[in-house]
Amino acid sequence: MSETTPTNAPQAPAGPRWAAALGALPHCISNSPDGAVIEVEVAHLHAVLAALRDKAQFELCTFVTCIDHYPAEPRFALHHQLLSLANNDRVRVRCVLPGESAPTCTDLWPGASYMERECFDMFGVRFEGHRDLRRLLMPEGYEHHPLRKEFPHQGIEPDRLYREWDRKRREGWTEEA
């Protein structure tokens, strides 16, 4: 066995390896129990994500999700969790959204498409530049976003779409008969 350090040994300070990649982009690094968190503004979110992917070898976007801080304003905070297989490193990018729109990251990680669709479905965050921003889990035509804090957990007329479909179906039958 050679005397080189094993590649999966814990890297001593995790910050500097990718901190240089961010360069002059305005950001703020903090530590959480889950690891390092980079806080950015929404204007620099896409540039920071691109820099982390291209210069710091974060090849994977583990998840994209949102946290609703209602009734605080601004209420939505977008979270991107990134994973670097080359460096065995993880980082989270947190971005407080001033409104309900955010830049997409599907041009960087195409696999983030479903996660952004789910995020749009559940929170109503619109991802600018997403090619196909449809609902993922709730049926099409549903007009609420269930994981928002003001949404009642028993729903608002949860059967409305089914009843409309059912009414059309019954009317169609009577026309045929």
Partner: peptide, 13 residues
């Protein structure tokens, strides 16, 4: 599942 997504008994459909 007292939830917005679940049919509260299939006897409603």
């Amino acid at each position: 599942y007292d939830s917005y997504a679940v049919v509260q008994g299939v006897d409603s459909i």
